[in-house]
Nucleic acid binder design. Structure first.
Length: 686
RNA sequence: GCGCCCGUAGCUCAGUGGAUAGAGCGCUUGCCUCCGGAGCAAGAGGUCGCAGGUUCGAAUCCUGCCGGGCGUACCA
């Protein structure tokens, strides 16, 4: 910048720029800038060198590289690191004024947690730790989904099909409830699922459509009245979606289904002689068309539960009735809810303990329903909300006078009077600012809810609650599997518990192979540190706006850019210090006498890296991005490994030995502190 | 349609307007009589999606395209 200004001024002064266009001037200036910059850099370097404050001053490519005196830097920096010990990297509390509440790990009762929740927990814990370390007044909070449709569904399914079957052990009842929830979802979505399959076959399979006439005639033989059959025929031959409400006879599908199966089997076993159609599927398809084998497999899967078909609409009615039992607070139902809720909470607390999530506040959805209804009432009387088609909504764009659709319209209560997520969040968000006096309220929630949170903020602002502008949504992208997006409907989401168990088992096996001399107790502990650390690191070492592709194979690999690499560097440093018999106090007392007359490049690189933790922590906290810290600890571990291979420590002679031992001691402290902020433990051996 | 996000090595990803764009995995080749080989060194592998613009300077900022993901009134 300086150089270009100088060049331009010089050229202007000499009159070379006269009569040239702006573009020509730029080109001329640009051509001469690099050369001039180097000349300027050399001049400046000479001047700086003369001050004698730097060990070396070099001008390279128009840049000036300064070197400090290594021994001075080493004494100051290592003294600071070893003196602060566990506080190195931490700013004094109160460095940043104001209280920030970080809400994360919004787990549900009555429903199992999956790998997607893992990202939330890991992110929430790390953001909280980093915020604290950076000197913000930090309040971690969780918000448990202990009421809502999923709970009602689960309890309906429990009472209807599983009452009295609960396992004896209290510890496994939460998981058991989660399975019941999954069953309820499968039951209630059965018609949708079956029709989705049938509609897809109709779209993709010409042979099926051609055969439908014959199939329906077969069906007609068993059931002469044929209005429903005519409807089915119409849908299929016109390739329209089937609406179950138009089928008067719920048993019809049960009788039709085996015929569908027969047709699909025939198609599988007699491949079309000339398939002139493209095998790549239809233009509107969701991916490539299913193969004949896949169709048969899917048909069989659905066929196992075909007796569910006639009952689904009744079940839906029952779930609605169950919702009403909650709304009227029927004592027996409330008691059932309390009991089962506690079963789940026991396991949620275990998950939180394991992943290092602690909270100063626990919020429950069930506790903010009433406050939410009050807010809805207020919004209606103030004219901010209105009833549209029987539904209380806020037409946000209209109220803000926006021409373009931006915040859309948000329903704030169901038309039957039951509460929505939004009902409760309106109340809770207010509460955070008013009752807890926070200055910033952070939601750590999946990015798919970003419009939702914008709506909450705008509605609160419309109601005159201006602090809502200080609520921030820390969104993160979801976790997908190599096989495709996680969907609880498809049931392909690995459960949090299963992932945890698999990784721990793998960690234990690796340790046994790499370090067979460890005793069983230590091995179990280290397996836990390494396994959980590996999970956390993979969840954090990716920017929030990137989808994490969760490959179970890769998550189980402990090589390369992963937590174990960093933990290994830490254990290695510990072992060197142990061999040297150097305690932290010893190291501290020797720092002042460090000499580095001929520092190796690896030693200087390590010093440089060590000095950067405090700055990285501040940046990670300000932007709520633990990624900066995962990158930092990895770089530090890598720098340390370079140093380790290039600079023998124990076999060197004093004064080099003292300097290197101090570097090792400081690296150990810094690695441990950095990992701790990420919620990852640093084993002393592994 | 509108809005948000993504596009960097075969794959998974870093990259604070600045120097020759970097890691890991995978592939090729070396290094344990030497502080712990979960490691280190070397090699191959790039039109930073495309096209304009701003700037002395753009992977980075702006605009427009292309490709993908997500969201868009009674799910959470």
């Amino acid at each position: 910048m300086l150089a270009s200004a100088v060049v331009q001024a010089e050229l202007a002064a000499s009159g070379d720029l006269e009569g040239l266009s702006k573009k020509q001037v730029k080109k001329l200036v640009s051509q001469q800038t690099t050369e001039r910059a180097q000349a300027l850099a050399e001049q400046i370097a000479d001047a700086v060198r003369a001050t004698g404050r730097f060990a070396s001053v070099e001008a390279v490519n128009g840049y000036i590289n300064l070197s400090y005196d290594a021994a001075t830097v080493a004494r100051d920096l290592l003294g600071e690191v070893l003196g602060a010990d566990e506080r190195y990297g931490h700013a004094p509390s109160g460095t940043h004024p104001g209280k920030v509440m970080i809400e994360h790990s919004q787990l549900n009762t009555h429903k199992a947690a999956h790998v997607g929740h893992l990202r939330n927990i890991c992110l929430g814990v790390a953001v909280t730790n980093i915020s604290q370390a950076a000197g913000y007044g930090t309040m971690p909070a969780t918000y448990i989904g202990d009421i809502g449709r999923h709970v009602i569904q689960c309890l309906w399914c429990y009472e209807r099909f599983h009452a009295g079957e609960e396992p004896a052990s209290t510890g496994s009842r939460g998981r058991w409830l989660g399975d019941i929830y999954a069953e309820s979802a499968a039951r209630l979505s059965y018609r949708k699922e079956l029709l989705a399959f049938l509609n897809r076959v109709i779209q993709e399979d010409d042979a099926f459509v051609e055969a439908i006439d014959r199939m329906l005639k077969l069906l007609w033989q068993t059931r002469p009245e044929g209005e429903d059959i005519a409807y089915l025929l119409g849908c299929v031959s016109n390739r329209n979606d089937i609406d179950p409400a138009r089928l008067g006879d719920a048993e019809l599908m049960v009788r039709f289904w085996p015929i569908v199966g027969e047709q699909l089997l025939v198609e599988r076993d007699t491949p079309a002689p000339e398939d002139t159609r493209s095998p790549q599927g239809e233009p509107n398809g969701t991916g490539p068309a299913m193969t004949a084998d896949e169709r048969v497999a899917e048909w069989s899967r659905l066929n196992e539960r075909i007796d569910w078909w006639p009952h689904v609409d009744v079940w839906e009615q029952e779930v609605k009735a169950t919702f009403q039992r909650w709304e009227t607070k029927e004592p027996a139902f409330v008691e059932l809810w309390e009991t089962t809720r506690e079963w789940s909470l026991i396991e949620l607390r275990e998950i939180f303990d394991e992943f290092g999530a602690t909270f100063t506040e626990w919020f429950y959805e069930s506790a903010v329903e009433d406050a939410g209804r009050e807010i809805v009432k207020d919004l209606l009387t103030e004219g901010i909300a209105e009833i549209s088609e029987g539904l209380p909504v806020v037409k946000i764009d209209e109220k803000l006078g926006l021409e373009r659709e931006t915040y859309h319209t948000m329903p704030i209560l169901r038309s039957d009077g039951t509460t929505l997520y939004a009902t409760k969040d309106l109340a809770l968000t207010r509460e955070k600012f008013v009752d807890y006096g926070v200055d910033t309220a952070v939601w750590v929630v999946d990015v798919r809810q970003s419009l939702y949170f914008d709506q909450i903020i705008k509605i609160l602002e419309l109601s005159g609650f201006e602090q809502a502008a200080n609520a921030v949504h820390l969104g993160y992208e979801f976790v997908t599997l190599p096989s495709g997006a996680i969907s609880s409907r498809k049931g392909n989401a690995p459960m949090l518990e299963d992932v945890r168990n698999a990784v721990l088992q793998r960690a234990s096996a690796v340790i046994e192979e790499k370090n067979p001399t460890l005793d069983a107790e230590t091995r179990a502990k280290v397996a836990w540190q390494v396994g959980i650390g590996a999970i956390k690191y993979t969840m954090l070492a990716r920017d929030g706006n990137k989808v994490i592709l969760f490959d179970p194979e890769e998550a189980l690999s402990f090589d390369g850019h992963a937590a174990p690499y960093i933990q290994y560097a830490h254990a290695r440093a510990c072992r060197i210090l142990e061999h040297a018999g150097l305690s932290l106090d010893d190291a501290r007392s020797k720092v002042a006498s460090i000499e580095l007359s001929e520092p190796a490049p690896e030693e200087l690189a390590l010093l440089q890296e060590l000095s950067e933790l405090p700055g990285v922590v501040q940046r990670a906290a300000a932007e709520y991005r633990p990624l900066y810290l995962t990158n930092y600890v990895y770089d530090l571990a890598k720098t340390f490994n370079d140093f380790y291979h290039a600079c023998p420590v124990l076999k060197s002679e004093d004064p080099v030995k003292t300097a290197r031992l101090s570097l090792v001691a400081a690296t150990r402290v810094t690695l441990r502190n950095g990992l701790a902020m990420l919620g990852i433990e640093a084993p002393i051996e592994m």
